[in-house]
Design a protein around this nucleic acid. Structure first.
Length: 500
RNA sequence: GGCUCUCUAGCUCAAUGGUAGAGCAGUUGACUCUUAAUCAAUUGGUUUCGGGUUCGAGUCCCGAGGGAGCCA
């Protein structure tokens, strides 16, 4: 027994495991302890009345994130769903043995604490822990990242998001905002008598958008399915079925690149309203976004302005929003009022004059749209309804009566990003079939014949709109990347740092 | 998929091709109102991995892997 134990003081994992072993040896299993808090931290803090210290007793629980040890007393902070609350532990209050046990706690441990609320000299409402007031409810066997700089390595932030949420206050605030945004959207739509539905993610034909789908296999049916790339065609079946106002908030999957604006799985809101049209959708989306800024984001100055991270410009959500046709924007960008009657060769020359590389194999509308997406869209920082896109860009909308080369749609652009497209929905089954066939180019398999059958049964005239929830959250939270508003963004597998 | 950048202690970061360091965290001690608490001492490294050049490589070269940005 004369052997000196090996020095493990450098190995925080080993030190914590040893503490766990000691606790168990003395009959305290920190994974079997129970504690029932009476309040979340934020609610508890509100209970303190100025000038009435120690009048209210609360029980709070959370993760130990700060320890300030002053010998015979300590200030510590715990973190729960609401945020942090400070605890004050005095040796002469809790007793020698309990105080010694408390000193063995580590940052990251989950504890429960019971005590009375008081205000410290510096004005922070704090729980004065009472005798037998502390319970260790879970031992953390791994150390937390550094307290001041937090977790900065982007890879670890995404792979171990839980650590990011514990130590990076801004990440936590931003990600907590997202459920509030989604909830607010739901409530607003429900208040307007929209019905929320759930439609299939496993589909035979991935329709409603142009994107490469993921494929998966159903064993019992012995058949492949595609993961949906859009919600559109099933929600329209609901219009056929007599649901006049429907929406769905759900995951779409697109088997394409990953970037600051793209995650392979992302969340869409789609809304369909019978007897409305794209102009009705304009009012709806503006109401929705203004309400979100007013009620959820609540800019401090009482305005409806949000800072745009990429440009530094303030985005003004209040008031009426700019409305401009696609053709007007193209005319202005090219300086050519006759752009749309120019030959393909002239369009190629025009695009190249703007510094854009174009593939001669492209269709004319693709050349024009390259100008829109590269030269125009990124400059539209303030909310802008771009209306009447060329009909080739979407086969699911009604043609404009006065100009059958365009469709009755808008694309809402904010912060240089497409946020919400909306259409007067095509409900003529023959026109719809013709558009599908033209687009499929003989590939009958890519046509959703079941949807066309539904249309033949009759779909009421309707306006429809989609909002990319992730992009909306980027805008509303001032984030720089889609990865900052998705809890667990897609990364290459297996890269997590190996831990002993 | 292409180009550029990046990977060093648990975390945040240093280190002309020449002995791998600091702060926080950890460990030991002091301190009964702290706010990145303070003070003293102290442990801790296969520098992402595999090759190469060199008397000598964290640093230069090649390859692999992860991540970031731009492009497609």
């Amino acid at each position: 027994m004369s052997e000196t134990p090996p020095d493990i003081s450098h190995d925080q994992h080993a030190v914590r495991r040893q503490k766990l072993a000691e606790l168990r040896a003395t009959g305290h299993d920190p994974f079997r302890a129970s504690f029932t808090p009476t309040h979340f931290s934020g609610d508890a803090l509100k209970l303190h009345v100025d000038g009435q210290d120690n009048a209210v007793t609360v029980a709070v629980a959370g993760r130990l994130v700060t320890i300030r040890d002053m010998g015979k007393s300590q200030f510590v902070k715990i973190l729960d769903q609401h945020g942090q609350i400070q605890l004050y532990i005095k040796k002469d209050v809790v007793g020698e043995e309990a105080y010694a046990a408390f000193k063995k706690l580590d940052l990251g441990d989950f504890i429960g604490a019971r005590g009375t609320l008081f205000k410290t000299k510096t004005g922070e409402v704090t729980v004065r822990v009472e005798a037998n007031g502390v319970t260790l409810v879970t031992k953390a066997l791994r150390p937390l990242p550094e307290k001041w700089h937090g977790l900065a390595d982007p890879e670890q932030v995404y792979r171990q998001r839980y650590l990011d949420l514990i130590v990076n206050t801004e990440s936590r605030a931003r990600l907590m905002l997202r459920p509030k945004i989604v909830s607010h959207i739901r409530h607003l739509l429900e208040a307007r008598q929209f019905i929320e539905v759930e439609t299939p993610m496993l589909q035979n034909v991935a329709g409603g958008a142009a994107a490469r789908p993921f494929t998966t296999r159903h064993n019992a049916l012995g058949t492949d399915f595609l993961l949906r790339i859009s919600l559109e065609l099933y929600l329209k079946r609901m219009l056929v079925g007599g649901y006049d106002r429907v929406f769905e908030i759900g995951r779409n999957f697109r088997n394409e690149g990953i970037s600051r604006k793209h995650n392979p799985e992302f969340t869409m809101l789609e809304v369909y309203q019978a007897y409305s049209d794209y102009r009705g959708m304009m009012a709806l989306v503006r109401d929705l976004l203004q309400s979100l800024v007013r009620e959820v984001i609540r800019p401090a100055d009482g305005s409806l302005k949000i800072k745009h991270a990429a440009s530094g410009e303030d985005i003004e959500f209040g008031g009426a929003w700019r409305e401009v046709s696609y053709k007007e924007l193209i005319h202005a960008a090219t300086g050519d009022a006759d752009w749309f009657v120019r030959s393909k060769a002239e369009k190629i020359a025009g695009a190249e004059k703007l510094g854009l590389g174009v593939d001669p194999k492209w269709e004319e509308f693709e050349i024009t749209n390259e100008i829109f997406s590269k030269q125009i869209e990124p400059t539209l920082i303030q909310p802008t309804f771009v209306t009447h896109l060329p009909k080739e860009l979407c086969p699911l909308a009604k043609l404009t009566l006065e100009d059958p080369t365009t469709i009755d749609v808008f694309e809402l652009v904010i912060g240089g990003m497409e946020v919400a497209p909306a259409y007067s929905e095509q409900n003529d089954p023959d026109a719809q079939r013709a558009m599908f066939e033209a687009q499929a180019g003989g590939d009958q398999q890519s046509i959703d014949h079941d949807f066309l059958l539904a249309l033949e049964h009759g779909m009421p005239p309707a306006g429809g709109m989609g909002i990319g929830i992730d992009r909306l959250c980027i805008l509303l939270t001032g984030a720089e990347s889609i990865r900052d508003v998705i809890l667990f963004p897609q990364l290459r597998p297996g890269g997590a740092k190996a831990e002993g």
